[in-house]
Design a protein around this nucleic acid. Sequence first.
DNA 1: CAGTGGTCTAGACCACTGG
DNA 2: CAGTGGTCTAGACCACTGC
Lengths: 265, 265
Amino acid sequence: MAIHTSSLTDPAALAGDAGAAAGVAPAFSPLYQQIKVLILQSLQAGEWKPGEAIPSEMDLAARFRVSQGTVRKAIDELAAENLVVRRQGKGTFVATHAEQHVQYRFLRLMPDSGDTNSEGPAERQIIDCKRLRAPADIARPLSLRTGDAVLQLRRVLAFQGTPTILEDVWLPGGPFKGLTAERLATHRGPMYALFETEFGVRMVRAEEKIRAIAADEASAMLLGVPVGAPLLSVERIAFTYNDLPMELRRGLYRTDTHHYKNDLS
Amino acid sequence: MAIHTSSLTDPAALAGDAGAAAGVAPAFSPLYQQIKVLILQSLQAGEWKPGEAIPSEMDLAARFRVSQGTVRKAIDELAAENLVVRRQGKGTFVATHAEQHVQYRFLRLMPDSGDTNSEGPAERQIIDCKRLRAPADIARPLSLRTGDAVLQLRRVLAFQGTPTILEDVWLPGGPFKGLTAERLATHRGPMYALFETEFGVRMVRAEEKIRAIAADEASAMLLGVPVGAPLLSVERIAFTYNDLPMELRRGLYRTDTHHYKNDLS
DNA sequence: CAGTGGTCTAGACCACTGG
DNA sequence: CAGTGGTCTAGACCACTGC
């Protein structure tokens, strides 16, 4: 491994050796990137669980035989990607969807007046939860084969008594074996927190495609709006480590009292 | 200034002195943050224009009497905020909306199939451009007073012959004095690039509120969709340095062939 | 080749947390 | 008070660019 050849005893050998055999460029990779990959591997291997502290910078520096500054830069990037949270004086912790002061980290729907906290927690109602064989348009985004087992879940979120979000969620059957409507209903806190504690699946990032559509009969009924009313359609693919898709979610949002907020920079 | 008291000759005096008089906490501010503010001030003062190189890290370190590493960390943050672009071997450059390989940095609308480049440049058509006194709902988000002069602009963007975006843009009359429909029509490239070169206004970040609405008669006509068709309503406030709002934009997007893409992390 | 940003180190000291 | 992350420095060397 490149790390061990580029330690204190031989700081000259820096270039990564991955891909050096082929005719392609040697793809120079700085030491801190290599350390970052090693920490990442420990994270996905579950060496440290969500919410727990990872070893101190000094410990990691000793383990990898590099200076603290190099470990520091690796952790800086992990923190920038929200995989890890630094707390001065305490340590560095594996990020988690539970115990996070923002209840829903990936939900961008905000009430038109007041902040998210002022309207209190969402009232959740599970409409449906069943196993089925994935049709092509579900299997593809989840990197599954058509016909593979998936879990489908339908629920409604209401804010202050007004049903606002109708969501269909699809999960790969393998990693989420044993997930039931019962378990979901009794769980408090974000769904992604339950995924972490019960199934060891941590959602790391997501992509959303947003459209405006007209409510069909079923959706209109569940959300309490007229048929044909404009709704925000939000299709989300959520990824765990290694850009592995682990959830497909199709949501319909009422935007008469709420809006989808996005910050560009 | 704090910088000069915490130079090489007196590296002990680090704490910022801002706000030390009041009973509030002294608000410790690290050196690199102070340097960042100084560079920021030079940026908004126009000491270096968009597209130009700023002084090298060594030069800035000498100017501010700090080490290169400290300047480096300041620039790192500016680069993370897209205010500045680093190019190895060449220098650090003031970010610009022109000459940027992504044509529209703040536009999140993507064609459903293929990438942004495959559909070629947007065809732009100015519908209207006039001066008026700002009503309250326009003045407020622009931090103006009701009745202040604003410029209103309406245009349609079409992709491959299909009108897709209808936008109303409001700009404060002062900074944009002299902007005409003629000038906009003859200009090639992003509108924000013209704002930089002609008016010295650089948009740095933006906030968007997204809703689904039904097309009214005027919008339906201009976009070539039936009245009542669902459209994506995108309200954007764009800010220049110092979080100063400089543009209000209300867009209606057709989402039958395109979608709004958002990455969450 | 000189000049730029990028990496890496070693060591000192500071701010914050908790026992 | 010890341990953690956070700041700052000084110096060496590397990778990339352009003359």
